[in-house]
Computed example of a mutant assay.
Amino acid sequence: MFVGGFATFAMVYGPQPLLPLLADEFGIGAASASLTVSAAAAGLALMLIPGSVLADRIGRRQVMMVALGIAAVLACATAIAPDFGSLLVLRALLGAVIAGLPAAAMAYIGEEIAPNAQARAMGLYIAGNALGGMSGRFIAALITDWSSWRIALAVIGVLGLASAVLFWRRLPPSHHFQPRAATPARILRDTLAIYRDPGLPALFLVAFLAMGAFVGLYNFLGFRLLEAPYLLGQTAIGAIFLLYLVGTWASTLSARLADRHGRHKVLWIMVVVMGLGLALTLARPLALIIAGVGVFTFGFFAAHALASGWVGKRAGERRALGSALYLSSYYLGASVIGTVAGTAWGAGHWPGLALLLGACVLATGAVALYLRRLPT
């Protein structure tokens, strides 16, 4: 599951540091270039619920294996896209196909891992997401400095293929999966039950706002650091994505804190950490900007690990659909807020962007405080 999470984030977010290059290559603005990431996130958001329904019907393992394999082939194909429109179509298809893995992953962990180890298992899966996102971005930036963005995307695709082979060979079969009829009536009934829960819709809102702020920050960080007074190269900008290692640590640490103190007592604190990191990025010295991005990354991955694990607990037997709704909100936030952030960047550069992202973090904090008052 760690490898599956790694490959998903590497393929979906690998092109993120290349956005300034794509803007120059195709003669488009920053907001349009960000659609390269947003298209994949939108495909993910739209197909997560169908993916969860399919996983309920035919099995978690089968859906995850097929999704990862086809997505890796599509990732390779993006390297030969003839124009920006074709690139966006391939990226959207990649996101739609890879949705099968995260749609089934949380349900698989909930069914196959012992209850007293689920928080740690979820933390390890989220850590794979963080390491994949970091590695994909760093590798893409590094190779682009040596060669071209097309070669970089090809290497990300090959990395996805290698991950798919390892995933197919090592993922244990399901022992506790029980098929559920994928009828419209059952899906509607389960959806209504999920939205009647006092906590689940709030957790979906946390996913939308937090992920949107996170992607918005990283989408336009490269644009800022390419400009004066920083004038950093692609490799240097890609190295900043090594801060994802902080996210790997944060997701496992937050799981231990949740086991000890409860998710409701830890989540809002991690949102405050995100806010502090964002405030630091407003400073001019490069060291403070990097420190702020690191603090923000820590808070985000900790909050995501807490919220996603909480969804599985609250959704019960509907955990597959609950997880899909959570992740749909998560990737919809990446697509919508990540793209709107381009308008904020164009209007006010980094202060304008920070204002928008700060509003998202404040709203996330308000929701986390509401969740803190709910009975466990």
Rank of each mutant, 00 (worst) to 15 (best):
V3M: 08
A7C: 12
T8K: 06
T8R: 01
F9P: 05
V12Y: 02
Y13V: 05
G14Y: 14
E25N: 09
G27P: 09
G29A: 06
A31M: 14
A33G: 12
A33P: 04
V37E: 03
A40W: 11
I49W: 07
P50E: 04
V53D: 13
A55Y: 08
I58W: 13
I58S: 00
G59F: 11
G59S: 09
R61I: 10
A67K: 13
I70G: 04
V73K: 01
V73T: 11
I80Y: 11
P82T: 02
D83M: 04
G85D: 13
S86E: 08
L87N: 03
R91T: 07
A96L: 13
A96I: 08
V97C: 01
I98A: 00
A105V: 10
A107V: 10
G110H: 09
I113D: 03
P115H: 04
A119I: 12
A121D: 02
M122C: 00
L131K: 10
G133Y: 13
M134K: 04
S135L: 12
S135Y: 08
G136R: 08
R137N: 02
A140L: 11
A141G: 04
T144C: 10
D145I: 10
W149A: 12
I151N: 08
A162R: 13
A162E: 05
A164R: 08
F167S: 01
F167K: 10
R170Y: 14
L171A: 10
H176W: 10
F177D: 05
A182Q: 14
A185K: 15
R186N: 15
I187F: 14
I187Y: 11
R189T: 13
D190S: 13
Y195S: 09
D197V: 11
A207D: 10
F208I: 14
L209H: 09
A210R: 04
G212F: 13
A213D: 03
L217D: 04
N219G: 06
F220V: 05
L221H: 03
L221P: 01
R224D: 14
R224Q: 14
L225Y: 07
P229T: 05
P229Y: 03
Y230H: 08
L231Q: 11
Q234N: 14
I237P: 07
L245A: 15
L245E: 05
G247V: 07
T248Q: 06
A250E: 11
A250Y: 14
A250V: 15
D259G: 03
H261S: 10
V272A: 04
V273Q: 00
M274P: 09
A279L: 15
L282H: 11
A283L: 15
R284G: 07
G292V: 09
V293S: 02
G294V: 14
V295W: 12
V295Y: 11
V295F: 07
V295D: 01
L306E: 03
V311W: 05
V311C: 00
V311F: 08
K313F: 07
E317W: 06
E317A: 11
E317G: 14
R318P: 02
L321G: 00
Y326K: 05
L327Q: 06
G333K: 15
A334S: 15
G338I: 07
A341L: 13
W345A: 03
W345D: 01
G346H: 13
W350Y: 03
P351C: 00
L353K: 09
L353Y: 07
L353A: 00
L356H: 13
A359M: 12
V361G: 05
A366S: 12
V367N: 00
V367W: 07
